[in-house]
Each structure stands twice: as C-alpha cells, then as structure tokens.
Amino acid sequence: MARWGMVIDLDRCTGCAACGTACKAENNIPFVDPEESARDRTINWMDIIPAEEHGEHNGGGPMMPRPCLQCDNPPCIKVCPVYATYLTPEGIVAQNFGRCIGCRFCMAACPYTVKYFNWHDYRRKDGFHLYENPDVSTRPAGVVEKCTFCHHRLQLARERARVEKRPFRAQDYVPACAETCPAEAIEFGDLDDHNSRVSRLKRSPRARSLLQELGTKPKVVYLVREHQNEIG
C-alpha cells in the first residue's frame, strides 16, 4: 500500500502563493469576509508562512508554503474525542466534517497550526457557490477543516483507473498544490516506493522535517535552501 508524501524544495520555491490559491479553488475553501479576516479567521489549508524565525513582528524573511504536515504520528488524532480526524491506511490524516463536534481540541494540539475552524457558516450563496468543486464537500459552521492531500483526487484517480481497466499508478494522483506550483518546487508521490522521485528527494541531505524534535514524523518534508553561495 502506498504511503503518500510530499517534498517541498525551498530552494525552488519563490513564495508566490500559487499553491495556496490552487488549494482554495480545489477544495472549496471559502474566503471569509474582510471583517472576519480582521479577526484572524482566514482559512488557508496551504498557508504561506515565514520560513525563518526573525523576532516578533518584524515580518519578512523568506516565505514558505505549509500544508497539513500529514504526520505519521499525528498529535491531533489522539485528542479527537469522536474519531473525526484519523489516519487512513495510506497515511493521510483525514478529517470527517460530518462527525466533527467542533471541540477544537485538535486545533489546540496541532503544533503546526494547520487546523482551521468554521467560526461562521462561510459557505457562500451569492454566486460563488456555482464555481465550487463538486468532488469536495463544503463545510458547515462549527467544524474543523484542514488539508487532506486532496484526498478526493486519490479516489477519482482510483475510479478512473478502474473504468479504464488498468492498474492504478502512483503518478495518477497529484494534489492541486503540487500540480500548480510554477517553480516545480512541490513533489508528491509514494514514499514507500524507493525509486519514486519524492522518496529520493526525501533522502536528500537537504531534507528536513518541520519541528523534527517533536517526533511527529511529518510526511511533508522540506528541502532547505542550499547555503548561500559565497558573496561578500
């Protein structure tokens, strides 16, 4: 069985946020109104965050995309009282919007702050809903949501392979962010396949796990920038 993972090359990444925008379009992520945004309630499954620590409120530093890290040892699933967030056999940390009771314990437990809450019903009825992706359910008020590695794309790819009467291949399944990245900085695939590009990149000496010391074993791995070429 595949173990899906992602490698983000920060030396290629330009911080343009195209991945985040593609993610919003793909996953029907509602934009919250400006007033809600001012209350820090914007939902960004793929957030663009500073890649380096640089003191409080100084802003800047290179930015990097941050999806759900899809931990192999996720701190969020252990605290969910109703199995609304759980690890699938293929290693995806899934979120069951229909069962979530909205206690937000997983949000408090996630060290990467990848979980987002629907403080209001952000689903739009004013025309925007006509552009929703029919493969992804929209979320009602009061539940937690997050990056699912575009899990629906995996299901679609499987179905397509079945219809075409051919075996399912790992490359049939790519999340929207990896597909969109103009700098080709996001690599996606099966980590258990030693020959896949993603698992080769994961073994690169530049590979780092975010907050590695926590032992969450993320399946989203970053390739750090090569040390600055020597200029003065």
Partner: peptide, 17 residues
C-alpha cells in the same frame, strides 16, 4: 461548534482523547 452532535462522543467515542 456543533452541540447538536455532542452525542457523537457516546456513539463514536475515542478513549484515547
């Protein structure tokens, strides 16, 4: 967020939490 689903704790309770 969803008090209407509070009973899920009994129906699907995860004792690790």
């Amino acid at each position: 967020g969803r008090p209407d689903r509070a009973l899920n704790v009994l129906l699907y309770g995860r004792y690790q939490s």
